[in-house]
């Protein structure tokens, strides 16, 4: 049982939860994630990145976007409520090193997992350029935190409602074309964005790390559901990743695999909406 000690609404669809998980708070490293399940009997297990942790308070921070049934149910929990199951920390930690100049590119909810990595990169003495992108102003998260970390900060939205009206790849290409060029790029966001970022950096031969959000069940290497093709080889995101060399990842396959349960998910999401509405009505009745 993990109590939600703090619940914050970051944007329309994005929530921040600080939850009790002392052992995970103690051992987690940037880049690692947890598997969360709201209900032991019938709930779905979903992976979420550990956005931050406080070993003294024994809490970890999760930031998630409501996209379907499981995240919707999670978002419906109140502050002070409990999440039945939280497993972790899982995955390999990010390799943090002093390389010189690092560009962190975050898209949408991907900014949440990017934040601890950017923090660690900065701490390791790197010069940090942050490029954040979102569909629209309302979906921007962690702007001030990321801005505070960075030596250079670029914000863009698809619709131009805030910052530059551009996709993140536009400013990224400009940064890559500078001399000296960046030593490392870290990109986290929707698969299509990570694919575009990897294509942008490829001609410049800049090492590019991406964090993959495949579908998972156990998160410990026993189901193979999270497998992706990297450099022609099958790898498990939960134990070999979640971070991989963006220039080697088969994004087309990843995106196809992410749609495996699409019809089911849409249906479940519908049903979830109805159930939660009924609960609300009962509360007010």
């Amino acid at each position: 049982m993990h109590r939600i000690v703090e619940k914050k609404v970051l944007s329309d669809e994005v929530f921040l939860y600080r939850i009790e998980a002392p052992l995970i708070a103690e051992s987690r490293k940037p880049g690692q994630f947890v598997i969360v399940q709201t209900d032991t009997e019938y709930g779905e297990r979903i992976p979420l990145t550990i956005a931050d942790a406080d070993p003294v308070a024994g809490t970890i921070t999760l930031i998630f976007q409501v996209v379907g049934d499981a995240t919707h149910r999670l978002a419906a929990l109140p502050e002070g409520g409990v999440i039945e199951n939280v497993l972790g920390p899982l995955g390999r930690p990010t390799h943090i090193e002093h390389v010189g100049m690092v560009v962190c590119v975050g898209g949408g909810i991907g900014v949440a997992p990017l934040h601890p990595i950017a923090q660690a990169m900065k701490r390791a003495g790197n010069r940090l350029i942050v490029i954040l992108g979102a569909r629209t102003e309302k979906l921007i998260i962690l702007e001030s935190e990321m801005r505070a970390l960075s030596d250079e900060f670029i914000l863009c939205t698809d619709d131009g409602s805030r910052g530059r009206k551009a996709l993140v790849t536009e400013p990224l290409r400009e940064v890559c074309a500078r001399t000296p060029k960046p030593d490392q790029v870290v990109a986290i966001g929707p698969p299509i964005m990570m694919k575009a970022v990897s294509e942008t950096t490829r001609p410049f031969a800049i090492p590019t790390i991406v964090s993959l959000n495949s579908i998972m069940v156990d998160g410990t290497g026993m189901c193979g559901g999270c497998r992706v093709t990297v450099g022609g080889q099958t790898r498990f995101v939960c134990v070999d990743g979640p971070e991989f060399d963006g220039h080697e990842v088969d994004f087309t396959n990843l995106m196809q695999r992410l749609r495996t349960y699409k019809p089911f998910e849409d249906q479940a999401h519908e049903r979830c909406h109805l159930e939660l509405q009924i609960q609300e009505l009962k509360k007010h009745a």
Binding site: D39, E41, Y42, G43, E44, R45, D69, A70, V217, D218, M222, C223, G224, G225, R227, V228, T229, T234, D250, N253, Q256, R257, R259, T260, Y261, F264, E265, A268, C272
Partner: peptide, 29 residues
Amino acid sequence: NLVGVFSANEYLTRANLMRAYDRERARTP
């Protein structure tokens, strides 16, 4: 790695542990 290829572990875990056979109640697809 095509969509629709599963390890027996994944298939059975979804079905048994996550009770996906109970399509009325289970939320694991």
